[in-house]
Nucleic acid binder design. Structure first.
Lengths: 146, 146
DNA sequence: ATACAAATGCAAATGATTTGCAATTGTCAG
DNA sequence: CTGACAATTGCAAATCATTTGCATTTGTAT
């Protein structure tokens, strides 16, 4: 059986963030909320094709969600971004196969990585590399804003 | 005073990996070897402009280096890749400022992240997010190769 | 019902990276 | 030293994900 995530109240989420309850945006959040893995735009387009939304519209919706921190964009793969619903309580990371390009979610944060390292290597057989990047504002820039 | 990395013997590195000792490739390795931070292609182009190398050539050289694991490509920032000499003994990670886009190197690996977490947050004033991705081959794909 | 901002569609632009192909250049065997 | 051959390069054009301008449509609040 397939993993399935807890669905969310898409309408409520949109309202909370001051977004309009558009068919596309409602569906997008529903799709993301039940997906066990982060999804590329191509998949989101396919899963919403009954609405015939334009790609640009899709991107705009996703960008709006990301800016609102409703959705997280995974950009560790240079080629194309993956989108995943942001569940504040469940901070996760990812592991991707360089062969079939599947991306799996590692249901824990780096905070407990040491303890979980063995589990990670069991998930995949071979791990070639990992990339970790923090994004923030450096002291110089913070000073500049003041 | 500025950090400066230990330079490497570029000619030897190229030879070891079966590359030709081309002016561009020699210079590229030299530049990367003394850089304290990963560099974007634009910077590499500027620093090699006396050779007037074509962008495509630069990319081909860098890709060859990455494939040979001589250089590491940091792709956590979606916009453009950063390149850094791979020093097998010194495995590091990075921290980037979302305001001025500087990328600093964190001279330790996630293995000791818990202990170093405080240092990381001191490096930057504010950390909005971090992305961690493992790349490897999943069990399914490994089985397929067998 | 009205009005206005948000969201959309369409077409065109961007920008980093890649590719085809012909010409050039290291390197290595003889 | 001298080919010969593969690796490397230059140039132009192609890709491909993502973005943008602008006119139009659609939610939503009043």
């Amino acid at each position: 059986m397939k993993k399935q995530m807890q669905p969310v109240d898409a309408a409520a989420l949109l309202e909370e963030h001051g977004f309009k309850k558009t068919p596309l945006r409602l569906l997008l959040l529903e799709i993301l909320s039940i997906s066990p893995a982060p999804l590329p735009v191509s998949t989101l387009q396919r899963k919403t094709k009954k609405l015939g939304a334009d790609l640009a519209t899709l991107y705009r919706a996703l960008n709006a969600f990301v800016e609102a921190e409703l959705v997280q964009a995974i950009t560790a793969d240079k080629k194309k971004a993956l989108y995943e619903l942001n569940r504040p309580k469940i901070h996760v990371h990812h592991i991707m196969c360089d062969s079939c390009n599947t991306v799996e979610t590692i249901p824990f944060c780096i905070k407990s990585l040491d303890q979980q390292a063995i589990n990670v290597s069991r998930l995949f057989k071979k791990i070639y590399s990992h990339q970790l990047a923090f994004v923030g504002t450096c002291r110089k820039c913070l000073r500049a804003v003041r």
